[in-house]
Design a binder for these strands. Structure first.
Length: 299
DNA sequence: AAGCATAGCAACCGCAATTAT
DNA sequence: AATAATTGCGGTTGCTATGCT
């Protein structure tokens, strides 16, 4: 079982791309469009694997790539988005037109991570701590090998197609509530399964994110699981941006009375950050996001 | 000027989700 | 439904440029 590695062929070019290869790839994509990466090299006459072609195109050759220094505004945005989304580089890049996930990742690992670390002694210490630790070299002897140990539970990046956060209001009585259920993760099949419907439909008083046919519910057990600050620790797939980004993002955010202002602001930002799908916001208004983030950070 | 250390970045690797058959 | 192929993502590596001693 298993599948053949993309670049299993011997004799393929590796390493830095030549100007000629770039030219060939650009010409081919201009003529035939993106996609079909597997067959592209053969058709284009490139001695590269498709994966390499795709990467080269996405990270370097794409016409809308914005090259050059990252502006202060962009930097601020990256920091804030990273604070919120963690190492979701593609999501962060989606907020920065013309920037690639690889570029942002590199920029973070080489520059911003250190700044974040520096700030960690100040008021935002806790906000940055886990991230700084994540990229901080474990020792000075291995600068290029950042240690990825963080206190944040950070499973390997996964894409969820369906996410359900059950929001439960605190019970009106004093009887101890049952142990809170874990956030429900429903597969596509589960979401389509009528037997699972109750899991979805009975959640009526939480914030509902309606994204096309998908729904994302927030789960709240009465504790501060969704407390503003906790977002920094709920990194991996808390509310999966991919899901929201891909879904058309017609979101109806309703807030129950149980939410703190901070939570609401955070959700509001999430809503903003994820609602602006990359394909339709080529002209992202950084200022509007900055304003939103500013308001979000108010105590 | 030479050698070493570090920073920056392009590219690769492996895994997982998605799509096709 | 099962399997294979494709695509996308985040982590990591390795090369080059730059700075320091």
């Amino acid at each position: 079982m298993g599948r053949n590695p993309c670049c299993s062929k011997d004799g393929l070019n590796r390493g830095a791309w030549t100007a000629l290869e770039d030219k060939i790839l650009m010409a081919y994509i201009k003529a035939h469009g993106e996609g079909k990466w597997r067959n592209l090299p053969e058709r284009a006459g490139l001695n590269r694997c498709g994966k390499s072609c795709r990467l080269r195109w996405l990270n370097y050759l794409r016409p809308d790539i914005k090259r050059g220094n990252i502006s202060h505004d962009e930097e601020e945005l990256i920091i804030r988005l990273h604070n919120l989304l963690g190492n979701r580089w593609s999501l962060i890049a989606g907020r920065l037109p013309g920037r690639t996930d690889n570029e942002i990742k590199n920029y973070w690992n080489t520059t911003l991570g250190k700044k974040a670390e520096g700030k960690s002694s100040s008021q935002s210490k806790q906000r940055f701590e886990s991230k700084a630790r994540a990229i901080k070299p474990s020792t000075s002897t291995q600068p290029s090998k950042p240690t990825q140990t963080t206190q944040v539970i950070r499973p390997k990046a996964t894409r969820w197609t369906k996410v359900l956060f059950l929001l439960q209001s605190p019970p009106p009585t004093r009887t101890p509530p049952p142990p809170p259920p874990p956030p429900e993760i429903l597969s596509s099949t589960a979401m389509n399964d009528p037997s699972q419907a109750s899991l979805i439909n009975h959640q009526e008083d939480g914030p509902n994110f309606h994204c096309g046919t998908e729904e994302v519910h927030a789960w709240h057990d009465g504790s501060d699981f969704f407390n503003f600050g906790k977002w920094n620790e709920i990194q991996p797939n808390d509310i999966d941006g991919d899901t929201l980004m891909k879904s058309g993002c017609n979101r109806n955010l309703s807030t129950g009375s149980e939410y703190s202002l901070g939570l609401f602001d955070e959700l509001k930002f999430k809503d903003w950050a994820l609602n602006h799908c990359p394909e339709d916001n080529a002209t992202l208004d950084l200022e509007s996001l900055a304003l939103l983030l500013d308001s979000e950070e108010r105590p």
